[in-house]
């Protein structure tokens, strides 16, 4: 019960901060837009080909903007030594991790909810029949990515060139999550192999569990002062 309250307190702090400055969500959204638009220029948007690459474009936009959001959120903690403040509180280190993951998932989800309709309009996708499943996949992919990303952004925030370090650490390790999220999205959007996408979703759940547990266990070693 107390743990839940502590998590909510940290979460509330992060959300309030974001509501005041709005810099993370705005920069993430703008960046995701740009990625989508660049893809429209680099591929021929009128052909059928772009529809096949749509899941890939969607996830590249989400992951790249997610990467920006993660590095921003920890840079902000560093700038005002806010992390010290949180660490001074009598809170279990692992709870900080949970709160941070939830916060990052929330920010990334908001961006997704903005980007998804834009993608649907620009690429003329039909997602009506699989919308609930698609939202589940988006959530699971984001959860895994944010789970690894929260740990790594804490690490990279303490390195010399943190903006460069985060993607270098994050993307190779999260290959399984990226792969299964993209694959299940592709099967959902193609509308043919719903069964195939289900097995990928199961795999994605498994990866999420593994990564979240490991990162949860290791977080205390990263955050100690």
């Amino acid at each position: 019960m107390i743990a839940l309250k502590q998590i909510l307190a940290i979460l509330r702090k992060d959300i309030l901060l974001e509501l005041r400055s709005k810099d993370i969500i705005v920069s993430m959204c703008v960046f995701a837009f740009i990625v989508v638009i660049v893809f429209n220029f680099t591929f021929d948007p009128t052909t059928q080909q772009i529809k096949i690459s749509a899941p890939g474009i969607l996830w590249v936009a989400l992951l790249f903007s997610g990467n920006i959001g993660l590095s921003r959120s920890f840079a902000r903690e560093q700038e005002n030594s806010m992390m010290q403040g949180v660490l001074l509180c009598p809170v279990d280190r692992s709870l900080i991790y949970i709160a941070k993951v939830i916060g990052n998932v929330i920010f990334m989800t908001i961006v997704q909810l903005i980007i998804l309709p834009v993608m649907v309009i620009l690429l003329d996708l039909s997602i009506g029949h699989v919308l609930p499943q698609l939202l589940v996949v988006l959530f699971l992919g984001t959860l895994g990515f944010a789970g690894i990303g929260t740990l790594f952004s804490t690490i990279s925030a303490n390195t010399k060139s943190r903006e460069v370090m985060l993607p270098i650490l994050l993307f190779p390790v999260s290959v399984p999550v990226i792969l299964s999220a993209t694959k299940s999205t592709a099967y959902l959007l193609s509308g043919k192999d719903i069964g195939q996408s289900l097995s990928w979703i199961k795999l994605l759940v498994g990866f999420d569990v593994i990564f979240l547990v490991i990162c949860f266990l290791l977080y205390e070693y990263v955050i100690e002062e």
């Binding site: 690894i148 740990l151 790594f152 690490i155 303490n158 390195t159 650490l169 390790v173 290959v175 399984p176 593994i210 490991i214 990162c215 290791l218 070693y221 990263v222 100690e224």
Partner: peptide, 14 residues
């Protein structure tokens, strides 16, 4: 050293 250890563990589990 601590960061590297954490990353090394996750990398191998990966």
């Amino acid at each position: 050293a601590r960061f590297a250890a954490v990353f090394g563990i996750i990398g191998f589990v990966d």
